[in-house]
């Protein structure tokens, strides 16, 4: 669901529907009764490929030792502007 123009879509929930068209209509009835959105995407849950919580460590570890990717890693000499 895109809540307002300019924001990215975020997941709001799940529902049952026989096909995509009805899924969209049900999503409108279920998740936008109070004007919560200006755009809806529906995706069959079977079409989602997800990372597994069991492999969380191995999967995300490679990012853990790369603190130099963050700007805060670098020391900026006193008096330097626009950096």
């Amino acid at each position: 669901m895109r809540a307002r123009r300019g924001l990215s879509h975020t997941h709001v929930g799940s529902l049952h529907a026989p096909d995509a068209e009805l899924a969209l209509r049900h999503a409108r009835d279920l998740y936008t009764r109070r004007q919560e959105g200006v755009s809806i995407w529906v995706v069959p849950s079977g079409a989602i490929t997800a990372s597994s919580p069991d492999e969380r460590d191995a999967f995300f570890d490679p990012a853990a030792d790369k603190v130099y990717r963050h700007p805060t890693f670098y020391e900026v000499p006193d008096g330097v502007a626009h950096l």
């Binding site: 929930g13 799940s14 529902l15 009835d29 279920l30 009764r33």
Partner: peptide, 19 residues
């Protein structure tokens, strides 16, 4: 009518959470 429709919606949020 809107209130009773909300109740149906609440049931569906919760069924989805249970699933």
């Amino acid at each position: 009518l809107a209130k009773v429709q909300d109740e149906a919606g609440h049931g569906l949020y919760l069924y989805a959470a249970a699933e």
